[in-house]
């Protein structure tokens, strides 16, 4: 039997390729639109442009944690590995997005208020609490016995998502409310020429989230297949 080495890289599944291209196009459009085309805010000036990314990535992080929670519920009901993969990947991306929210918010605070951090900024503090809440997800998964990791991860994803609105509200009752409100109960607090680029940015971040989750799920599946092959190889030899 001759052993040959296949050096060609396997092609990515089509849905991942399509999602990746769509994410790249939307993110490119968002950058061009937010930094070049959208009108400048009369009050805040150029620093306001970071809101196209700051608010969009904040909303996308909440969507990611919501998907993580739903995936956790479905995993607890069905026990299929796919939903655990989706859950853990969603929480991973959600956590990265939350960190980006804090970083972009901090940059805005420096531009608007002259300081990197203010404890009376409700949203920054809320996202800090959410980062702490979801960072614990990985501590729990990493520390749990291997056959319980997925189950505990799913339970904690549900628990943490239920605690998110409590964290938001508790910070709101504890602090004064000085952060500019982009979205109110009456709708978006911005003109249409700005709103369109915000929506493109939001769509870009959501598409990127879907792409990253799809890649991570594929990677975890490949990892398991590789481990199975290794076990079979060890068994044969």
């Amino acid at each position: 039997m001759s052993l040959t080495t296949d050096t060609t890289r396997p092609a990515a599944p089509r849905h991942i390729l399509a999602l990746g291209v769509l994410s790249a196009v939307l993110m490119g459009l968002a950058v061009v639109g937010a930094l070049g085309i959208a009108p400048e805010d009369a009050d805040q000036g150029v620093v306001q442009r970071i809101f196209y990314f700051h608010v969009a990535v904040a909303i996308a992080s909440m969507v990611a944690f919501g998907v993580g929670c739903v995936a956790g519920i479905v995993f607890l009901r069905r026990g299929t590995t796919l939903w655990d993969d989706i859950g853990v990947s969603s929480v991973e991306v959600g956590l990265v997005y939350s960190v980006l929210t804090i970083i972009t918010g901090s940059i805005w605070a420096k531009g608007a208020w002259g300081v990197w951090w203010r404890w009376d900024d409700v949203r920054l503090v809320s996202f800090l609490l959410i980062i702490l809440l979801y960072a614990a997800y990985f501590v729990l998964r990493g520390s749990a016995e291997p056959d319980r990791q997925a189950r505990f991860g799913a339970v904690y994803a549900v628990f943490a998502f239920a605690a998110v609105p409590l964290s938001f509200y508790s910070v709101r009752i504890a602090q004064s409310f000085i952060h500019p409100v982009v979205f109110t109960s009456k709708g978006a607090n911005m003109p249409g020429s700005m709103l369109v680029w915000f929506v493109v940015s939001l769509a870009g971040f959501l598409c990127l989230f879907a792409t990253l989750v799809a890649v991570e799920v594929q990677q975890r599946r490949a990892q398991r297949a590789l481990e199975r092959l290794k076990r079979r190889f060890d068994h044969v030899h």
Partner: peptide, 8 residues
Amino acid sequence: LLLPALVP
């Protein structure tokens, strides 16, 4: 695990 949940 517990302290972040206890903040509120």
